[in-house]
């Protein structure tokens, strides 16, 4: 079954903390990480965010590591390509293939390491957000962006029906599996097409039914938003500021690539 991180966020002890503070922390980490010229600040961010998610957010370490390995294939593939093709400097190792020389030099390796660390820091910020802030809390944030109401309403209803359809999809998939629908890839493709079609028809019908039931409750284009006042606590503010300061100092010290 797919792990939906939102389900973990809903029971997170950090769920009922101030949304804007959490968004500030994530935004800060993402921006500093991606603009850093050294791998040190991103690693520091990754460490802090992972610690916060696991320790304060009470996410099990095993689960955290599992989801962290999800992007690994893409990242490793890309990092290897970068290592081979990018940068100058002394060659560390190389080999000939089809009369074509492939080598990794220090510049390439540095770049690969940097990209790797940025991705790691970015992903750990994303995980912090995903595992501590359920989507239902973020809708009021979305509302504050002043984007068109229709867009936000569609987002909210989409959220709701993603879970309805996920359940349907898994139900059908089980039913197909027990009738040997995934025994080889040809069968699987056909099963998947039937699944998608059933899902498509179901979603179409659902759309009509929802409209009927919304009209029955006098729908005239207004959805209620749910926002609660959650003041930022002093200790949260202190901790966040310390974290910002440490990372900024690291970022300042490493802003010229040659120091490390």
């Amino acid at each position: 079954m797919t792990n939906i991180l939102d389900d973990y966020a809903l029971v997170s002890p950090l769920r009922y903390r101030n949304n804007w503070l959490k968004i500030a922390i994530v935004g800060f980490g993402v921006l500093v990480g991606v603009s850093s010229q050294s791998f040190i600040p991103p690693f520091a961010i990754a460490l802090c965010m992972s610690f916060t998610t696991v320790y304060f957010g009470k996410t099990s370490l095993k689960f955290y590591l599992t989801i962290l390995s999800a992007p690994a294939v893409f990242v490793l593939l890309s990092v290897i390509i970068i290592a081979f093709f990018f940068g100058s400097g002394t060659e560390i190792f190389g080999f000939n293939i089809f009369n074509y020389h492939l080598g990794v030099n220090t510049g390439g390796l540095d770049m690969a390491l940097l990209v790797f660390s940025r991705t790691l820091s970015g992903m750990s910020c994303l995980f912090f957000l995903a595992l501590t802030t359920p989507m239902v809390e973020l809708f009021s944030v979305l509302k504050a962006t002043k984007l068109p109401d229709s867009f936000i309403e569609i987002s909210m209803m989409m959220y709701r029906y993603i879970f309805v359809f996920l359940e349907v999809a898994w139900g059908i998939k089980y039913a197909q599996t027990v009738r040997l629908g995934y025994k080889d890839w040809r069968t699987a493709l056909n099963s998947l097409a039937m699944l998608s079609t059933t899902l498509f028809i179901r979603s179409w019908e659902q759309g009509e039914k929802i409209f009927i039931s919304m009209s029955a409750r006098c729908y005239d284009g207004k959805l209620i938003f749910f926002e609660e006042k959650r003041p930022i606590r002093a200790n949260e503010l202190v901790l966040t500021c310390t974290y910002f300061a440490v990372v900024l100092v690291l970022w300042y010290l490493t802003r010229i690539n040659s120091i490390f």
């Binding site: 229709s150 309403e153 569609i154 909210m156 209803m157 989409m158 709701r160 029906y161 993603i162 309805v164 359809f165 996920l166 999809a169 899902l199 498509f200 979603s203 179409w204 659902q206 759309g207 009509e208 929802i210 409209f211 919304m214």
Partner: peptide, 13 residues
């Protein structure tokens, strides 16, 4: 509106 929402949910799933 609900139709587009379920279409989006369908794409996600």
């Amino acid at each position: 509106l609900p139709l587009l929402a379920v279409a989006g949910a369908f794409i996600f799933v």
